[in-house]
Amino acid sequence: MNDNLFIVVFAAAIYYGTPLVFAALGEILAERSGVINLGVEGMMLLGAVGACWVATSIDGPAGVVLPIAVVAAMLFAAAGALIHAFLTITLRVNQIISGLALTIFAGVAGVSSYLAGLWDLGQAPVANQFGKMDLLGWGDLPVLGPILFNQTLLTYLSWLLVVLTSIYIFRTRWGLQLRAVGESPQTADSVGVAVQRSRYLHVLAGGAFAGIAGACFSLSILPTWQNGMTLGQGWIALALVIFGFWRPDLMLVGAYLFGGLSSLRYTLQARGVEIPQLFLDSLPYVMTIVVLVVVSNSAARRQLGAPAALGKPYEREER
């Protein structure tokens, strides 16, 4: 039963889609406040190196080490986000180039690899890992059990965060303020919302989420350190935000679609299915472009989509 190809592919889609969920969820928060952060890839690597460092250097039971590692991942990545926040919100520089700078600074040839070299990471798999576990006792359910309820704690955490973030954005007063800041900062300011503070907080939260996404790689998927181990997933997360029309629920669907595409090379190869490597390796990237084209066109037609003030710095007028 558990060997059924259908089940294997779907379970892998969720497993490999989980970092995408965290990263895209964080980016949704940042972009809802009006700030694009192209540094996701770099922040994920910062989170991955932070988590790997803690998991390698602290001995102890998994229940102690792993939470500390995840918190470290969040702090590392949020520190990267803080640079972007300061430059784009306080100094009002171009958000696109600042985000790129963050990815270059933190990315494969930057701080993350520097720190990994300094701490001598990647020699062996980390001792404490997030393994698959049947948290709710529903793992024996037919079909759904192995797909949904035999995942890692990180996946369960991502579901919780998707639900909480959805409620936060659409059902709370703070969420309303957040959307106002992203749509029309002038209006938000005039009714007493602190625009700059809101943007700082959501860019930092976005960074922390990207950090957890990185921890998924260094504590579960690989689970060790490799320079540039996120392999462009941060950029796919950026595309998922557009794919999901800046909504957590739609984004989740897209993340699992792309998780499935990224995992096909492992799942199909393990079962000896003959599909050219070239095709499987490029599939997630090709599909990102295809999906983006389709979504961008329909979004333009139906007036759906991006927060109106996305990418625009807010300059308070003098009174």
């Binding site: 700078a101 270059i104 933190a106 930057g110 701080v111 520097y114 990994a116 070299g117 320079n227």
Partner: peptide
């Protein structure tokens, strides 16, 4: 230290943006 090239490149980009402002 490896990774120093990217660090310096990223910092140059950050500082250019900030300096411009």
């Amino acid at each position: 230290p490896s990774g120093l090239v990217g660090i310096l490149e990223g910092l140059i980009l950050f500082c250019t943006l900030g300096g411009e402002v």
